[in-house]
Structures are given as C-alpha cells and as structure tokens.
C-alpha cells in the first residue's frame, strides 16, 4: 500500500521542514540534535515508540541544554534500547521496574532538589523525565503516576501509547481501543476483540489532578510533539504527555504506515490532540481533513475481523460514534467552534 508523498511541506505540521525559517525548524532537522536515543537499537522497522522517544527526548534535551535525566519503565522502549551489554541512551538513564517509573522520577527530582539547595540554588538546572508504554502508565504504573501528579513532583512523564502490551506479545491494556484484537481479547464471540465500555482516558485523569500541563501528541505531527515537550520543560511541577505511537507488530500494520496511521487517528477524531493547563483544555489541534474511521481501521489487522464477508459494520459504526463523540467533546472540527 503506497502513499502519495507531498514534497511541499512548508506550513504543514508534518516532517521535514528544512524549508522553514531556522527558528521554526524541528529539533531533528538540526545536525545539533542530541541523538539521545541513538542508532543501533533493536526496535522493529517502523516502530512508532522509537520515533516518538527520539523526538521527545531530543526536544527535552534541547530545552534543558542537555541537563536531563530519564527514568524508564520496563517495556519495549527499555528492552530494545539496552540489550546487554549495549545502550542506545546518551543521557543518564535509569530503568528500575515496570510499574514505578513515575516514582523513580520523583526520587531523582527530590535528590536534585536537595543537591541544588546545598549548592545555594533555588532549584536544580538538571531536569527529569520519566517514560513508559501505556501498560506501564495506565495499568501497572498508575498508582505511582497518580502519586507523582498529586504531589506535583517536578517530573515530565511521557507515555508512549501503542494501545497494548506489545513487548510481552500484544496483550490488552486499559488503553486498548474497543474492537481491537489482542492476544487476550481474541476476535471471537458476539463482541470480538476488546469490549466496549472499558479502558481509561489517562489524559483526562491527569487533568483531574489539576497538574500544570497535560498534552497529547502523535508521531504524525513531530514538530507539534517537539513543541509540546519544549513547552513542558519550560514549566515546573508534574507534567504529562501522551504520545500515540503506532506499533506495526501489535497493530498488524505495514511498517511504512506508522505515520499515516498516527495521522489518521487524529484526522478521524479517535485520538484527540490537545493541551491542558491546570485541568482546563487550552488548545486543540483541529482535524484538517476529516476521515471516516474505516480508513484508519482497514489498515490494521487487529481490526480485520470487522471487515469482509463476516464483517461487523455495527461495530465499525460504534467506533465511528466514539470518534464523533470526541469531535463534539473536544471541538475537533473548525465548524464545531
């Protein structure tokens, strides 16, 4: 499945942008980029998480002038980046456990705060990010994350959301969307795949903690992603960024479709892209060319049971209704304003 690639990207939110003025160019467009997650790691071809992490961490590195420490949850990102005896990380990096990256981040931030006060400074120049996949964030790491939020610890938590436990072989998480096939939500019975009415919306839960900054982004809008990371690093206190990172393996999608899928997730309304401060939404990325959810679902084998002779147009319609609800709720269409 090939796509028409447009080479005139000036003024768009897409990749590239060497045609832009230097101050508007992406971190990754510069040869000065840190390559904090450098080449040689073991991620799959087309891995959305590797792409998202490289942009996010490099943006945080630029925003902090390289004064950055990362805590990492167990998961694909940890496994593919640090196969013994190698590491792809060019910043100080600590992996402890699956469910505690946020708390480990809190501990690092506490240590830095004390060190700064001992040096006579108001606060440390060294900043902290904690990162994990959706399983490590919305499920097993949820308690530690909520604790970090409510204490307003000075940590940016980044969730790379690929909607399932991909490292362990594609099982369902509380971020798996309805209808999706996983190894623990098989496409059998009257309600094939993940059930409707389950799962949690972590960006909204984060907002309920009234932390300084919550944002969502996708790997389709990398400049937007970088800008949100850089803005997050200009703030102090607990901050949360959830990045939609398509997983070719877990989603059953072509490696070349990672960015396309991320864009379709936004353009259908299934993944609202927004920013919130102190619990209130302050900015929403509008849908530019609205797409029916079918265009998004058909590219992914995890939804294959919804199409074909024994397809389930009723379920596709329910997923479309979810997208429509998001569009209304977040005001994702220009006309909705």
């Amino acid at each position: 499945m090939t796509q028409n690639i447009k080479f005139y990207q000036t003024g768009t939110f897409t990749v590239g942008n060497r045609l832009l003025d230097p101050e508007h160019r992406a971190v990754q467009a510069s040869i000065q980029r840190d390559n904090s997650l450098t080449s040689g790691h073991r991620a799959c071809q087309g891995c959305g998480e590797a792409l998202g992490a490289r942009y996010a961490v490099d943006a945080a590195m630029r925003a902090t002038d390289g004064q950055l420490i990362a805590a990492n949850a167990t998961g694909c990102l940890e496994v593919f980046s640090t196969p013994y005896p190698e590491t792809s990380w060019k910043l100080p990096w600590l992996h402890s456990l699956f469910g505690n990256a946020a708390a480990v981040g809190s501990g690092i931030a506490a240590a830095l705060a004390v060190k700064a006060r001992k040096a006579g400074l108001e606060r440390s120049a060294v900043r902290v990010i904690a990162q994990g996949g959706d399983g490590g964030t919305t499920d097993i790491g949820f308690g530690c994350l909520s604790g970090m939020f409510e204490r307003n610890d000075d940590v940016l938590y980044i969730c790379y959301d690929n909607e399932g436990y991909m490292n362990t072989g594609v099982q369902r998480s509380s971020a798996t969307p309805p209808g999706a096939r996983t190894a623990t939500t098989v496409p059998l019975g009257p309600n094939p795949g993940e059930e409707f009415g389950r799962g949690k919306n972590l960006p909204l839960i984060a907002m309920a903690h009234e932390i300084p900054y919550v944002a969502t982004a996708t790997v389709a809008d990398l400049r937007d992603l970088e800008a949100k990371v850089e803005h997050a690093m200009s703030l102090h206190g607990a901050r949360y960024l959830q990045i939609l990172v398509p997983c070719p393996l877990g989603w059953g999608a072509a490696s070349c479709d990672t960015i396309r899928l991320a864009r379709l997730a936004r353009e259908t309304g299934l993944f609202p892209v927004f920013e919130a401060k102190g619990g209130e939404i302050t900015a929403v990325t509008k849908i530019r060319h609205q797409q029916p959810v079918e265009n998004y679902l058909r590219l992914q084998k995890r939804f294959a049971h919804l199409f074909g002779d024994k397809g389930r147009p009723d379920i596709v319609a329910r997923i479309q209704a979810m997208a429509d609800k998001n569009i209304r709720r977040f005001g994702l269409l220009e006309a909705a304003e």
């Binding site: 708390a103 480990v104 501990g107 690092i108 240590a111 909520s146 409510e150």
Partner: peptide, 29 residues
C-alpha cells in the same frame, strides 16, 4: 533537618521506588 526532601508517597512500593530514584541520583536516602 535541612536540606532534606520528605516525600509522602502513596504506597510502600512507591516509597522504595522513590528511594531507588533518589539514591541513584546521589542522595543519601
């Protein structure tokens, strides 16, 4: 007792996890 960061955490799992982070960042924990 200063300078010292005192964190009221949400569980013992978090307590030891915070301790892991702060110790790895060089603080007596």
């Amino acid at each position: 007792l200063t300078p010292c960061e005192f964190l009221n955490v949400e569980s013992e799992f978090a307590a030891m996890s915070v301790a892991i982070g702060s110790s790895a960042a060089g603080a007596r924990t």
